[in-house]
Design a protein around this nucleic acid. Structure first.
Lengths: 147, 147
DNA sequence: GTAGGTGCAAAGGATTTGCTTAAAC
DNA sequence: GTTTAAGCAAATCCTTTGCACCTAC
């Protein structure tokens, strides 16, 4: 199957950030993150954490996001307007993301680049070192709602 | 073949911008664009035009880029640091881009998303409305140079 | 003559950084 | 006690916008 539930680990705040210290703020960020579910921007996360911890600074959230991305707990899954979209992503097997533009839900999709595409590029003399793939669309629920 | 010379039309300044007026500044921008070759940022283009037309404003370049993108003469092909990467792209058949990180050359690659991936997503109840695919790597020349 | 383009400067939004204070280990 | 994170503000970076003037058609 090509689409699948997006692989995330249980939300263990200690692991989210790798080897950093676990402050109260970061615990709240972890909790807010769990409540977001799908794709989100740093601003979304900041807004969510603010409900739990009024007055938390944006820099704190940005630094936490950077730490989580570094620890492979978050993946950069795209962009919305001028902002970067992140989603929880346990890493593991290489895959990409389909983001529901209706509700933000994220599902995994198999990588369509590895394989024939990279192979034929190599045969043409090209070396593919990186690639970005993101799909946008509607999840089953939102598909029904919007016809 | 999966990789191919990137489809661009001969640089006809009149067509680059769609139906807008052809000012002297836009003619110079067109000429600078031709000299850039591959992927570029608005800032790259502004720098190139500045050689031909010192004192040209950045806003003019940004507006010209927007006009060209609107007219399907340019495609947004990715991002570098915080900046948007564009490349000449005649449009036509749906495709994506492989950008050489060595020299900026852009080549077309077939879309690996249309087909099985979209079909299986649809079977799972998802509607795919859009997708982004960009490959990064080295062209044959840069591959040799860097081993 | 008029819509559209230019240039400049200021605004805008997202993200980062410097610095001092507070807290985890 | 030492090192790391928080909080706040200022700074930065890319891009867009407002406005007065100019120019292609």
């Amino acid at each position: 199957m090509t689409t699948a539930a997006h692989p995330t680990e249980p939300l263990d705040a200690a692991r989210l950030y790798g080897r950093g210290r676990l402050s109260a703020a970061r615990r709240d960020i972890a909790q807010a993150l769990a409540s977001l579910g799908g794709a989100f921007t740093a601003e979304d996360l900041h807004a969510a954490v603010s409900a739990l911890r009024p007055g938390i600074g944006v820099a704190t959230v940005y630094r936490a996001v950077a730490a989580m991305a570094e620890a492979n707990s978050l993946a950069l899954v795209g962009a919305r307007d001028g902002s970067t979209l992140y989603a929880r992503c346990a890493g593991g097997k290489h895959h990409h993301h389909l983001i529901c533009t209706g509700c933000g839900t994220v599902v995994s999709v198999a990588c369509p680049v590895d394989g024939p595409l990279v192979r034929s590029a190599r045969e043409a003399g090209y070396t593919v070192t990186a690639h970005e793939v993101t799909l946008y669309g509607l999840c089953p629920t939102c598909s029904k709602e919007r016809g």
